[in-house]
């Protein structure tokens, strides 16, 4: 099955207000706030590219840049985590 692979987390430090929503709701605890209360990716190797941090960021400050591991076309939805309760 085609999978998305992480390239990098692009974080706009000028826009991030350190609310911690992405840090708390990351299913793999990839993100943390640094000493300046800005988000950083401390465990990028654990990232599963669900992009929930990107979608829930009120400041549009984080972007999960991905690459496809094979040529099969794939939409974002297939790798998205379930947010159901």
């Amino acid at each position: 099955m085609a999978r998305l692979k992480l390239k990098e987390h692009v974080i706009n430090r000028d826009w991030c207000k350190g609310c911690g929503i992405c840090v708390h709701f990351c299913p793999k605890k990839v993100l943390e706030l640094d000493s300046q209360e800005k988000v950083i990716a401390v465990r990028p190797e654990d990232c599963i590219c669900c992009k929930l941090c990107e979608l829930r960021c009120p400041d549009l400050a984080i972007e999960v840049v991905t690459i496809q591991t094979n040529q099969e076309a794939q939409t974002d939805q297939t790798t998205r985590m379930s947010e159901d309760d």
């Binding site: 350190g18 609310c19 979608l55 009120p58």
Partner: peptide, 21 residues
Amino acid sequence: YFPQMWCPGCGHGIILNALLR
């Protein structure tokens, strides 16, 4: 106009994000 003027963690930013997507 960014960073936007809403408080840290304001849900309105998330709604903006969802709407743009």
